[in-house]
Nucleic acid binder design. Sequence first.
DNA 1: ATAAAAAGTTAGACAAGTCTAAAAATAATT
DNA 2: AATTATTTTTAGACTTGTCTAACTTTTTAT
Lengths: 220, 220
Amino acid sequence: MLSHAEENYLKAIYNIGLHTGKSVNTNLIAEKLSTKPSSVSDMIKRLSDKKLIDYKKYQGAILTSYGKKVAVNTVRSHRLWEVFLVDCLNYRWDEVHELAEQLEHIKSDSLVDKLDAFLKFPTHDPHGDPIPDKKGNVNHHKNVMLSSININESCIVVGVKDSSSAFLKLLDRNSIALGSTIKVISKEPFDNSIHVKMKGNKQSFTISQQVSNNLFVKKI
Amino acid sequence: MLSHAEENYLKAIYNIGLHTGKSVNTNLIAEKLSTKPSSVSDMIKRLSDKKLIDYKKYQGAILTSYGKKVAVNTVRSHRLWEVFLVDCLNYRWDEVHELAEQLEHIKSDSLVDKLDAFLKFPTHDPHGDPIPDKKGNVNHHKNVMLSSININESCIVVGVKDSSSAFLKLLDRNSIALGSTIKVISKEPFDNSIHVKMKGNKQSFTISQQVSNNLFVKKI
DNA sequence: ATAAAAAGTTAGACAAGTCTAAAAATAATT
DNA sequence: AATTATTTTTAGACTTGTCTAACTTTTTAT
Ligand SMILES: [Mn+2]
Ligand SMILES: [Mn+2]
Ligand SMILES: [Mn+2]
Ligand SMILES: [Mn+2]
Protein backbone atom coordinates (compact mmCIF):
# COMPACT_ATOMS: atom_id res chain seq x y z
CA MET A 1 0.00 0.00 0.00
CA LEU A 2 1.52 3.29 -1.08
CA SER A 3 1.48 6.55 0.84
CA HIS A 4 0.00 9.86 -0.28
CA ALA A 5 3.51 11.18 -0.79
CA GLU A 6 4.60 8.26 -2.95
CA GLU A 7 1.52 8.60 -5.14
CA ASN A 8 2.09 12.32 -5.52
CA TYR A 9 5.65 11.76 -6.66
CA LEU A 10 4.57 9.12 -9.16
CA LYS A 11 1.88 11.40 -10.50
CA ALA A 12 4.36 14.25 -10.85
CA ILE A 13 6.84 12.04 -12.70
CA TYR A 14 4.02 10.79 -14.91
CA ASN A 15 2.78 14.27 -15.78
CA ILE A 16 6.24 15.68 -16.46
CA GLY A 17 7.36 12.70 -18.50
CA LEU A 18 4.13 12.37 -20.45
CA HIS A 19 5.08 14.36 -23.50
CA THR A 20 8.85 14.14 -23.43
CA GLY A 21 8.97 10.40 -22.82
CA LYS A 22 12.44 10.87 -21.41
CA SER A 23 13.66 10.48 -17.85
CA VAL A 24 12.53 13.17 -15.44
CA ASN A 25 14.78 15.70 -13.68
CA THR A 26 15.03 15.90 -9.91
CA ASN A 27 14.62 19.67 -10.00
CA LEU A 28 11.46 19.52 -12.12
CA ILE A 29 9.85 17.10 -9.71
CA ALA A 30 10.81 19.30 -6.77
CA GLU A 31 9.29 22.32 -8.45
CA LYS A 32 6.10 20.50 -9.39
CA LEU A 33 5.62 19.28 -5.83
CA SER A 34 6.80 22.48 -4.14
CA THR A 35 9.52 20.59 -2.34
CA LYS A 36 13.32 20.56 -2.33
CA PRO A 37 15.59 18.59 -4.66
CA SER A 38 17.15 16.82 -1.68
CA SER A 39 13.74 15.52 -0.65
CA VAL A 40 13.18 14.30 -4.18
CA SER A 41 16.50 12.46 -4.17
CA ASP A 42 15.46 10.68 -0.98
CA MET A 43 12.07 9.70 -2.29
CA ILE A 44 13.38 8.65 -5.68
CA LYS A 45 15.59 6.12 -3.94
CA ARG A 46 12.61 4.67 -2.07
CA LEU A 47 10.49 4.51 -5.21
CA SER A 48 13.31 2.78 -7.00
CA ASP A 49 13.64 0.24 -4.18
CA LYS A 50 9.94 -0.49 -4.58
CA LYS A 51 10.35 -0.98 -8.35
CA LEU A 52 8.05 1.93 -9.11
CA ILE A 53 10.68 3.79 -11.12
CA ASP A 54 13.92 3.03 -12.90
CA TYR A 55 16.67 5.19 -11.58
CA LYS A 56 20.42 5.53 -11.85
CA LYS A 57 22.19 8.17 -9.84
CA TYR A 58 22.34 11.56 -11.54
CA GLN A 59 20.31 10.18 -14.48
CA GLY A 60 16.76 11.06 -13.50
CA ALA A 61 13.71 8.84 -13.08
CA ILE A 62 11.45 6.87 -15.42
CA LEU A 63 8.28 5.11 -14.33
CA THR A 64 8.22 1.33 -14.55
CA SER A 65 5.01 -0.15 -15.92
CA TYR A 66 3.97 -0.79 -12.32
CA GLY A 67 4.71 2.82 -11.37
CA LYS A 68 2.87 4.07 -14.41
CA LYS A 69 -0.14 2.01 -13.46
CA VAL A 70 -0.22 3.59 -10.02
CA ALA A 71 0.17 7.07 -11.51
CA VAL A 72 -2.60 6.59 -14.03
CA ASN A 73 -4.94 5.21 -11.37
CA THR A 74 -4.24 8.24 -9.23
CA VAL A 75 -4.93 10.55 -12.15
CA ARG A 76 -8.17 8.64 -12.84
CA SER A 77 -9.23 9.02 -9.24
CA HIS A 78 -8.31 12.71 -9.19
CA ARG A 79 -10.31 13.54 -12.29
CA LEU A 80 -13.37 11.52 -11.30
CA TRP A 81 -13.48 13.28 -7.94
CA GLU A 82 -13.25 16.61 -9.76
CA VAL A 83 -16.29 15.64 -11.83
CA PHE A 84 -18.13 14.70 -8.65
CA LEU A 85 -17.25 17.96 -6.94
CA VAL A 86 -18.41 20.07 -9.87
CA ASP A 87 -21.41 18.07 -11.05
CA CYS A 88 -22.79 16.92 -7.70
CA LEU A 89 -21.57 19.34 -5.07
CA ASN A 90 -21.75 22.46 -7.26
CA TYR A 91 -18.17 23.52 -6.86
CA ARG A 92 -16.75 25.75 -9.58
CA TRP A 93 -14.00 24.41 -11.84
CA ASP A 94 -11.46 26.68 -10.19
CA GLU A 95 -12.14 25.30 -6.71
CA VAL A 96 -11.78 21.55 -7.08
CA HIS A 97 -8.12 20.86 -7.64
CA GLU A 98 -6.89 20.99 -4.05
CA LEU A 99 -9.77 18.86 -2.81
CA ALA A 100 -9.22 16.26 -5.53
CA GLU A 101 -5.56 16.30 -4.56
CA GLN A 102 -6.66 14.84 -1.22
CA LEU A 103 -9.51 12.63 -2.39
CA GLU A 104 -7.38 10.90 -5.03
CA HIS A 105 -5.48 9.12 -2.22
CA ILE A 106 -8.42 7.34 -0.58
CA LYS A 107 -7.52 3.65 -0.54
CA SER A 108 -10.09 1.17 -1.78
CA ASP A 109 -10.38 -1.58 -4.35
CA SER A 110 -13.83 -0.53 -5.44
CA LEU A 111 -14.35 3.15 -4.68
CA VAL A 112 -13.08 4.69 -7.90
CA ASP A 113 -15.01 2.31 -10.13
CA LYS A 114 -18.19 2.83 -8.14
CA LEU A 115 -17.72 6.57 -8.37
CA ASP A 116 -17.14 6.21 -12.11
CA ALA A 117 -20.42 4.33 -12.49
CA PHE A 118 -22.31 6.80 -10.31
CA LEU A 119 -21.08 9.65 -12.49
CA LYS A 120 -22.12 7.68 -15.62
CA PHE A 121 -18.58 7.06 -16.85
CA PRO A 122 -17.51 10.59 -17.75
CA THR A 123 -14.76 10.86 -20.36
CA HIS A 124 -13.33 14.22 -19.32
CA ASP A 125 -12.87 16.17 -16.10
CA PRO A 126 -14.10 19.75 -15.57
CA HIS A 127 -10.88 21.07 -17.13
CA GLY A 128 -11.24 18.98 -20.26
CA ASP A 129 -8.57 16.48 -19.23
CA PRO A 130 -9.28 12.89 -20.29
CA ILE A 131 -10.24 10.40 -17.59
CA PRO A 132 -8.33 7.11 -17.87
CA ASP A 133 -10.61 4.09 -18.04
CA LYS A 134 -10.60 1.19 -15.60
CA LYS A 135 -7.78 -0.48 -17.52
CA GLY A 136 -5.64 2.64 -17.63
CA ASN A 137 -6.23 3.65 -21.25
CA VAL A 138 -6.15 7.41 -21.82
CA ASN A 139 -7.15 9.48 -24.86
CA HIS A 140 -4.63 12.24 -24.61
CA HIS A 141 -5.21 15.75 -25.87
CA LYS A 142 -4.16 16.44 -29.45
CA ASN A 143 -2.19 19.40 -28.13
CA VAL A 144 -3.60 22.03 -30.46
CA MET A 145 -3.40 25.34 -28.65
CA LEU A 146 -5.43 28.45 -29.38
CA SER A 147 -2.18 30.25 -30.14
CA SER A 148 -1.66 28.03 -33.20
CA ILE A 149 -4.99 28.85 -34.84
CA ASN A 150 -4.78 31.00 -37.99
CA ILE A 151 -6.57 34.27 -38.60
CA ASN A 152 -10.22 33.90 -39.61
CA GLU A 153 -10.33 30.30 -38.41
CA SER A 154 -12.70 29.18 -35.66
CA CYS A 155 -12.18 26.57 -32.97
CA ILE A 156 -13.86 25.03 -29.94
CA VAL A 157 -12.26 25.10 -26.50
CA VAL A 158 -11.72 21.52 -25.32
CA GLY A 159 -9.37 21.90 -22.38
CA VAL A 160 -7.05 24.00 -20.24
CA LYS A 161 -3.36 23.30 -19.86
CA ASP A 162 -3.07 25.31 -16.66
CA SER A 163 -5.73 24.45 -14.04
CA SER A 164 -4.74 27.15 -11.60
CA SER A 165 -7.53 29.09 -9.97
CA ALA A 166 -6.12 32.37 -11.31
CA PHE A 167 -6.24 31.20 -14.90
CA LEU A 168 -9.70 29.63 -14.63
CA LYS A 169 -11.16 32.75 -13.07
CA LEU A 170 -9.72 34.83 -15.89
CA LEU A 171 -11.48 32.53 -18.36
CA ASP A 172 -14.71 32.89 -16.39
CA ARG A 173 -14.49 36.69 -16.56
CA ASN A 174 -14.14 36.42 -20.35
CA SER A 175 -16.94 33.85 -20.58
CA ILE A 176 -14.57 31.27 -21.99
CA ALA A 177 -15.63 27.75 -21.00
CA LEU A 178 -15.23 24.24 -22.35
CA GLY A 179 -17.27 24.10 -25.54
CA SER A 180 -16.97 27.80 -26.33
CA THR A 181 -16.44 28.64 -30.00
CA ILE A 182 -13.72 31.21 -30.63
CA LYS A 183 -12.82 32.93 -33.90
CA VAL A 184 -9.38 34.47 -34.34
CA ILE A 185 -9.72 37.97 -35.78
CA SER A 186 -6.12 39.17 -35.84
CA LYS A 187 -2.71 38.65 -34.32
CA GLU A 188 -0.33 41.19 -32.83
CA PRO A 189 3.28 40.36 -33.80
CA PHE A 190 4.79 42.51 -31.04
CA ASP A 191 3.57 40.47 -28.04
CA ASN A 192 1.86 37.55 -29.80
CA SER A 193 -1.48 38.54 -28.34
CA ILE A 194 -4.51 37.68 -30.44
CA HIS A 195 -7.81 39.36 -31.10
CA VAL A 196 -10.75 36.97 -30.85
CA LYS A 197 -14.53 36.88 -31.00
CA MET A 198 -16.76 34.44 -29.16
CA LYS A 199 -19.61 32.87 -31.11
CA GLY A 200 -22.90 34.69 -30.52
CA ASN A 201 -21.08 37.76 -29.29
CA LYS A 202 -20.69 41.00 -31.26
CA GLN A 203 -17.78 42.35 -29.30
CA SER A 204 -14.25 41.09 -29.85
CA PHE A 205 -11.44 41.25 -27.30
CA THR A 206 -7.74 40.59 -26.82
CA ILE A 207 -6.09 37.51 -25.37
CA SER A 208 -2.47 37.40 -24.26
CA GLN A 209 -0.02 34.76 -25.39
CA GLN A 210 0.09 33.27 -21.88
CA VAL A 211 -3.63 32.63 -22.17
CA SER A 212 -3.74 31.38 -25.75
CA ASN A 213 -0.85 29.00 -24.99
CA ASN A 214 -2.87 27.39 -22.22
CA LEU A 215 -6.09 26.67 -24.08
CA PHE A 216 -6.51 23.37 -25.90
CA VAL A 217 -8.81 23.76 -28.89
CA LYS A 218 -10.25 21.75 -31.75
CA LYS A 219 -10.36 23.32 -35.23
CA ILE A 220 -13.78 23.67 -36.81
CA MET B 1 -4.84 22.13 10.87
CA LEU B 2 -5.06 18.79 12.64
CA SER B 3 -3.67 15.48 11.40
CA HIS B 4 -5.63 12.30 10.69
CA ALA B 5 -4.16 10.77 13.82
CA GLU B 6 -5.15 13.66 16.05
CA GLU B 7 -8.70 13.62 14.72
CA ASN B 8 -8.93 9.87 15.27
CA TYR B 9 -7.82 10.23 18.87
CA LEU B 10 -10.32 13.00 19.51
CA LYS B 11 -13.10 10.96 17.95
CA ALA B 12 -12.17 7.95 20.08
CA ILE B 13 -12.17 10.03 23.25
CA TYR B 14 -15.49 11.53 22.23
CA ASN B 15 -17.11 8.17 21.54
CA ILE B 16 -15.83 6.55 24.73
CA GLY B 17 -16.71 9.48 26.95
CA LEU B 18 -20.09 10.09 25.37
CA HIS B 19 -22.20 8.12 27.80
CA THR B 20 -20.03 8.10 30.88
CA GLY B 21 -19.23 11.82 30.78
CA LYS B 22 -16.16 11.08 32.83
CA SER B 23 -12.52 11.26 31.85
CA VAL B 24 -11.32 8.60 29.44
CA ASN B 25 -8.77 5.86 30.20
CA THR B 26 -5.54 5.52 28.28
CA ASN B 27 -6.08 1.80 27.82
CA LEU B 28 -9.57 2.25 26.42
CA ILE B 29 -8.32 4.70 23.83
CA ALA B 30 -5.51 2.34 22.90
CA GLU B 31 -7.94 -0.52 22.45
CA LYS B 32 -10.38 1.56 20.42
CA LEU B 33 -7.63 2.71 18.08
CA SER B 34 -5.78 -0.62 17.96
CA THR B 35 -2.66 1.02 19.28
CA LYS B 36 -0.50 0.77 22.44
CA PRO B 37 -1.04 2.65 25.70
CA SER B 38 2.40 4.22 25.38
CA SER B 39 1.44 5.72 22.05
CA VAL B 40 -1.72 7.07 23.60
CA SER B 41 0.26 8.69 26.42
CA ASP B 42 2.43 10.42 23.86
CA MET B 43 -0.48 11.68 21.82
CA ILE B 44 -2.48 12.75 24.85
CA LYS B 45 0.34 15.06 25.81
CA ARG B 46 0.34 16.66 22.36
CA LEU B 47 -3.45 17.06 22.36
CA SER B 48 -3.25 18.65 25.79
CA ASP B 49 -0.58 21.09 24.57
CA LYS B 50 -2.92 22.07 21.76
CA LYS B 51 -5.78 22.67 24.23
CA LEU B 52 -7.86 19.94 22.64
CA ILE B 53 -8.19 17.96 25.86
CA ASP B 54 -7.79 18.53 29.59
CA TYR B 55 -5.31 16.11 31.04
CA LYS B 56 -3.48 15.48 34.25
CA LYS B 57 -0.99 12.65 34.51
CA TYR B 58 -2.54 9.31 35.47
CA GLN B 59 -6.00 10.94 35.47
CA GLY B 60 -7.24 10.31 31.92
CA ALA B 61 -8.42 12.75 29.27
CA ILE B 62 -11.49 14.95 28.79
CA LEU B 63 -12.26 16.92 25.65
CA THR B 64 -12.23 20.69 25.86
CA SER B 65 -15.08 22.40 24.05
CA TYR B 66 -12.67 23.02 21.20
CA GLY B 67 -11.69 19.34 21.13
CA LYS B 68 -15.31 18.30 21.25
CA LYS B 69 -16.09 20.55 18.32
CA VAL B 70 -13.38 18.87 16.26
CA ALA B 71 -14.60 15.42 17.29
CA VAL B 72 -18.23 16.15 16.44
CA ASN B 73 -17.26 17.60 13.08
CA THR B 74 -15.29 14.47 12.32
CA VAL B 75 -18.23 12.29 13.33
CA ARG B 76 -20.50 14.41 11.14
CA SER B 77 -18.17 14.00 8.20
CA HIS B 78 -17.83 10.25 8.81
CA ARG B 79 -21.56 9.65 8.88
CA LEU B 80 -22.36 11.82 5.90
CA TRP B 81 -19.77 9.99 3.83
CA GLU B 82 -21.33 6.70 4.93
CA VAL B 83 -24.69 7.91 3.65
CA PHE B 84 -23.07 8.88 0.37
CA LEU B 85 -21.37 5.52 0.00
CA VAL B 86 -24.57 3.56 0.65
CA ASP B 87 -27.12 5.80 -1.08
CA CYS B 88 -25.09 6.93 -4.08
CA LEU B 89 -22.36 4.36 -4.65
CA ASN B 90 -24.44 1.32 -3.67
CA TYR B 91 -22.16 0.02 -0.98
CA ARG B 92 -23.72 -2.22 1.64
CA TRP B 93 -23.91 -0.99 5.24
CA ASP B 94 -21.24 -3.45 6.31
CA GLU B 95 -18.70 -2.12 3.79
CA VAL B 96 -18.59 1.60 4.44
CA HIS B 97 -16.94 2.07 7.80
CA GLU B 98 -13.29 1.77 6.76
CA LEU B 99 -13.78 4.03 3.77
CA ALA B 100 -15.54 6.68 5.84
CA GLU B 101 -12.68 6.38 8.30
CA GLN B 102 -10.47 7.78 5.55
CA LEU B 103 -12.91 10.21 3.95
CA GLU B 104 -13.76 11.91 7.25
CA HIS B 105 -10.28 13.47 7.29
CA ILE B 106 -10.48 15.37 4.00
CA LYS B 107 -9.71 18.98 4.84
CA SER B 108 -12.04 21.65 3.50
CA ASP B 109 -14.15 24.50 4.81
CA SER B 110 -17.06 23.71 2.57
CA LEU B 111 -16.97 20.04 1.60
CA VAL B 112 -18.99 18.53 4.42
CA ASP B 113 -21.77 21.09 4.18
CA LYS B 114 -21.96 20.72 0.41
CA LEU B 115 -22.12 16.96 0.80
CA ASP B 116 -24.84 17.39 3.43
CA ALA B 117 -26.90 19.48 1.02
CA PHE B 118 -26.32 17.08 -1.87
CA LEU B 119 -27.59 14.21 0.29
CA LYS B 120 -30.63 16.31 1.28
CA PHE B 121 -29.61 16.76 4.91
CA PRO B 122 -29.95 13.18 6.19
CA THR B 123 -30.55 12.83 9.92
CA HIS B 124 -29.07 9.35 10.39
CA ASP B 125 -26.28 7.31 8.88
CA PRO B 126 -26.76 3.78 7.45
CA HIS B 127 -26.29 2.30 10.92
CA GLY B 128 -28.93 4.49 12.50
CA ASP B 129 -26.45 6.80 14.17
CA PRO B 130 -27.51 10.45 14.32
CA ILE B 131 -25.70 12.93 12.08
CA PRO B 132 -24.66 16.11 13.92
CA ASP B 133 -25.90 19.26 12.22
CA LYS B 134 -23.71 22.08 10.96
CA LYS B 135 -23.59 23.63 14.42
CA GLY B 136 -22.67 20.37 16.15
CA ASN B 137 -26.05 19.50 17.68
CA VAL B 138 -26.69 15.75 17.93
CA ASN B 139 -29.88 13.84 18.77
CA HIS B 140 -28.38 10.92 20.60
CA HIS B 141 -29.92 7.48 20.73
CA LYS B 142 -32.29 6.80 23.61
CA ASN B 143 -30.19 3.72 24.39
CA VAL B 144 -33.01 1.18 24.53
CA MET B 145 -31.57 -2.19 23.55
CA LEU B 146 -33.49 -5.14 22.19
CA SER B 147 -32.34 -7.13 25.23
CA SER B 148 -34.42 -4.87 27.48
CA ILE B 149 -37.72 -5.45 25.65
CA ASN B 150 -40.25 -7.57 27.57
CA ILE B 151 -41.93 -10.74 26.37
CA ASN B 152 -44.82 -10.13 23.98
CA GLU B 153 -43.74 -6.56 23.34
CA SER B 154 -42.81 -5.34 19.85
CA CYS B 155 -40.21 -2.82 18.81
CA ILE B 156 -38.62 -1.24 15.75
CA VAL B 157 -34.90 -1.47 15.06
CA VAL B 158 -33.46 2.05 14.96
CA GLY B 159 -29.75 1.47 15.19
CA VAL B 160 -26.78 -0.81 15.75
CA LYS B 161 -24.28 -0.32 18.54
CA ASP B 162 -21.62 -2.45 16.89
CA SER B 163 -20.97 -1.48 13.26
CA SER B 164 -18.53 -4.30 12.56
CA SER B 165 -18.91 -6.09 9.28
CA ALA B 166 -19.35 -9.43 11.09
CA PHE B 167 -22.30 -8.17 13.11
CA LEU B 168 -23.99 -6.41 10.19
CA LYS B 169 -23.70 -9.46 7.98
CA LEU B 170 -25.28 -11.56 10.71
CA LEU B 171 -28.18 -9.12 10.77
CA ASP B 172 -28.46 -9.33 6.97
CA ARG B 173 -28.66 -13.12 7.12
CA ASN B 174 -31.53 -12.78 9.61
CA SER B 175 -33.21 -10.07 7.54
CA ILE B 176 -32.85 -7.59 10.36
CA ALA B 177 -32.48 -4.05 9.07
CA LEU B 178 -33.16 -0.53 10.29
CA GLY B 179 -36.95 -0.21 10.47
CA SER B 180 -37.59 -3.91 11.03
CA THR B 181 -40.34 -4.70 13.55
CA ILE B 182 -39.39 -7.39 16.04
CA LYS B 183 -41.63 -9.12 18.60
CA VAL B 184 -40.06 -10.83 21.61
CA ILE B 185 -41.63 -14.27 22.03
CA SER B 186 -39.67 -15.68 24.94
CA LYS B 187 -36.42 -15.39 26.89
CA GLU B 188 -33.95 -18.09 27.86
CA PRO B 189 -32.60 -17.47 31.39
CA PHE B 190 -29.58 -19.76 30.94
CA ASP B 191 -27.75 -17.71 28.28
CA ASN B 192 -30.04 -14.66 28.05
CA SER B 193 -30.82 -15.48 24.44
CA ILE B 194 -34.24 -14.40 23.21
CA HIS B 195 -36.74 -15.86 20.82
CA VAL B 196 -38.12 -13.33 18.37
CA LYS B 197 -40.44 -13.02 15.39
CA MET B 198 -40.10 -10.50 12.60
CA LYS B 199 -43.25 -8.72 11.44
CA GLY B 200 -44.73 -10.34 8.35
CA ASN B 201 -42.81 -13.52 9.01
CA LYS B 202 -44.36 -16.74 10.33
CA GLN B 203 -41.13 -18.30 11.52
CA SER B 204 -39.52 -17.25 14.78
CA PHE B 205 -35.83 -17.62 15.61
CA THR B 206 -33.29 -17.20 18.38
CA ILE B 207 -31.01 -14.25 19.00
CA SER B 208 -28.03 -14.37 21.32
CA GLN B 209 -27.42 -11.87 24.08
CA GLN B 210 -24.43 -10.45 22.20
CA VAL B 211 -26.77 -9.61 19.36
CA SER B 212 -29.70 -8.24 21.38
CA ASN B 213 -27.31 -6.07 23.37
CA ASN B 214 -26.13 -4.40 20.19
CA LEU B 215 -29.47 -3.45 18.66
CA PHE B 216 -31.02 -0.09 19.47
CA VAL B 217 -34.81 -0.28 19.31
CA LYS B 218 -37.87 1.87 19.84
CA LYS B 219 -40.84 0.38 21.71
CA ILE B 220 -44.13 0.24 19.85
C1' DA C 1 -1.50 -1.72 55.96
C1' DT C 2 1.04 -4.13 52.88
C1' DA C 3 1.65 -6.67 48.79
C1' DA C 4 0.21 -7.71 44.27
C1' DA C 5 -2.03 -6.32 40.08
C1' DA C 6 -3.38 -3.06 36.78
C1' DA C 7 -2.98 1.18 34.55
C1' DG C 8 -0.22 4.79 32.91
C1' DT C 9 4.17 6.99 31.75
C1' DT C 10 8.99 7.48 30.25
C1' DA C 11 13.19 6.23 27.71
C1' DG C 12 15.04 4.95 23.65
C1' DA C 13 14.51 3.27 19.08
C1' DC C 14 12.58 3.31 14.48
C1' DA C 15 10.28 4.74 9.79
C1' DA C 16 8.52 8.32 6.75
C1' DG C 17 9.12 12.59 5.05
C1' DT C 18 11.05 16.96 5.08
C1' DC C 19 14.72 20.56 5.52
C1' DT C 20 19.58 23.09 5.32
C1' DA C 21 24.23 22.96 4.26
C1' DA C 22 27.96 20.75 2.17
C1' DA C 23 29.96 17.67 -1.24
C1' DA C 24 30.05 15.29 -5.71
C1' DA C 25 28.86 14.68 -10.47
C1' DT C 26 27.43 16.50 -14.77
C1' DA C 27 26.87 20.11 -18.15
C1' DA C 28 28.11 24.45 -20.14
C1' DT C 29 31.65 28.06 -21.17
C1' DT C 30 35.56 30.00 -22.33
C1' DA D 1 41.08 21.15 -21.71
C1' DA D 2 40.27 23.65 -17.79
C1' DT D 3 37.13 26.32 -15.31
C1' DT D 4 32.58 27.66 -13.99
C1' DA D 5 27.87 26.83 -13.29
C1' DT D 6 24.19 23.80 -12.63
C1' DT D 7 22.20 19.71 -11.07
C1' DT D 8 22.04 16.04 -7.98
C1' DT D 9 23.20 13.59 -3.97
C1' DT D 10 24.69 12.98 0.90
C1' DA D 11 25.06 14.08 5.83
C1' DG D 12 22.82 15.37 9.70
C1' DA D 13 18.85 17.28 11.95
C1' DC D 14 13.93 17.63 12.88
C1' DT D 15 8.72 16.25 13.30
C1' DT D 16 5.00 12.97 13.68
C1' DG D 17 3.60 8.79 15.10
C1' DT D 18 4.54 4.37 16.42
C1' DC D 19 6.72 0.48 19.16
C1' DT D 20 9.10 -2.40 23.19
C1' DA D 21 10.91 -2.54 27.61
C1' DA D 22 11.42 -0.59 31.93
C1' DC D 23 9.65 2.23 35.48
C1' DT D 24 6.03 4.75 38.38
C1' DT D 25 1.58 5.58 40.08
C1' DT D 26 -2.89 4.10 41.30
C1' DT D 27 -6.07 0.56 42.40
C1' DT D 28 -7.37 -3.84 44.26
C1' DA D 29 -6.93 -7.74 47.18
C1' DT D 30 -5.20 -9.90 51.05
MN1 LIG E 1 -2.37 14.39 -4.01
MN1 LIG F 1 -8.51 18.55 -13.58
MN1 LIG G 1 -10.33 8.08 10.71
MN1 LIG H 1 -21.87 4.55 10.94
